[in-house]
Simulated assay, not measured.
Amino acid sequence: MNRLAVYCGSATPADPRYVALARDTGAVLARRGIGVVYGGGTRGLMGALAEGALAEGGEVIGVIPEALAATAEVANHACTELHTVATMHERKLRFTDLSDGFLTLPGGVGTMDELWEAVSWAQLGYHTKPVGLLNAFGFYDGLVAFNRTMVDTGFIRPMHQDIIMVETELEPLLQRMADHRPHRPIFAMAAEEL
């Protein structure tokens, strides 16, 4: 993996562990020679992620929509590259094009949108890249349980149940992502298998 798209919140939670997690993740990725592709902002976990990677001399590529660069977020001009795009959809497509996989840290609605699109596109066959979820501090326990419910009720096929790789620590998650073997996507399945 040369680059990972890292999804995380632009908010700064009261609990300082989340910001520290993002900063440490950026630093670890940089030390491993893995570039960071992220939302391009300076605030919250996103900003901490970029700071951590840049402090270690890592590659940081920001992708930020025009509207966010101009208002709600401050674009991070310290990035190795900063791409300004027209829409959120274009942003997510650029994340996919520029990365070799997807790593999700704690975040809110936008982070969930990015995660589920990466999962959906993997399931369908639009990409064959690993999708990792760092369940630090039990933040995603409910989401992991809900994903299991979707598997158990048959809304997620058995061959797709492990698209989301979940770990509570970064190093084992990165190893699983590096060892990733693509599953059989829906686009390659016969009609009777659907």
Rank of each mutant, 00 (worst) to 15 (best):
G138N: 09
P182C: 07
G138K: 06
G125D: 00
P182R: 00
A136P: 04
A191L: 11
F155N: 06
L143N: 10
H127T: 02
N135K: 05
V131G: 01
E169M: 11
Y126G: 02
L143A: 14
L170N: 07
A145F: 03
D162G: 04
D179R: 12
L134F: 00
I163L: 06
E171Q: 15
D162C: 03
M165H: 04
L174C: 02
K129D: 00
L124C: 10
L134I: 04
P182H: 02
P130K: 00
I164G: 01
F155W: 14
M189R: 12
E171H: 13
F187S: 14
K129L: 04
A136Y: 03
G142K: 08
M189K: 06
N147T: 11
I163A: 01
P130H: 00
I186A: 04
G138E: 12
P182M: 04
K129M: 03
G138H: 08
R184L: 14
R176N: 10
H180Y: 12
E167D: 14
N147S: 12
D141V: 05
T168P: 00
G138D: 11
G132D: 04
P130E: 01
L173T: 05
D162L: 04
R184A: 13
R184Y: 05
L170Y: 03
V144N: 09
R176C: 06
M189W: 07
A136S: 15
N135P: 03
H127F: 02
R176K: 15
R184G: 07
R157L: 13
R148P: 07
V151Q: 11
Q123R: 05
E171C: 06
N135F: 01
L174D: 01
T128E: 04
L133P: 04
R148H: 13
G142E: 11
Y126V: 09
R157G: 07
A136F: 05
Y126I: 12
H183G: 07
E169Q: 15
L143E: 14
A178I: 05
L170K: 05
E192N: 11
D141E: 15
V166F: 08
W121I: 01
A190C: 07
Y140H: 11
M159Q: 14
L134N: 02
F155D: 06
A145H: 11
Q123T: 09
A145K: 14
R184H: 12
M159P: 12
V144E: 09
A122M: 07
L174F: 01
E169F: 05
E169D: 14
I156M: 03
P172T: 10
L170R: 05
R157W: 08
D152E: 15
Q175W: 08
Q161D: 13
G132H: 02
G132S: 07
A122F: 01
L173H: 05
E193M: 09
P185Q: 01
Y140M: 08
F146L: 12
F155Q: 06
P182A: 13
L170G: 08
F139Q: 12
R148L: 11
G154I: 15
A122I: 04
H183W: 06
W121D: 02
F139V: 00
H127W: 00
L133Q: 04
D141C: 09
I186D: 03
T128Y: 01
L174G: 03
M177T: 11
P158M: 08
A191G: 08
H180W: 12
P172G: 09
R148F: 10
I156K: 02
T128I: 08
R148M: 10
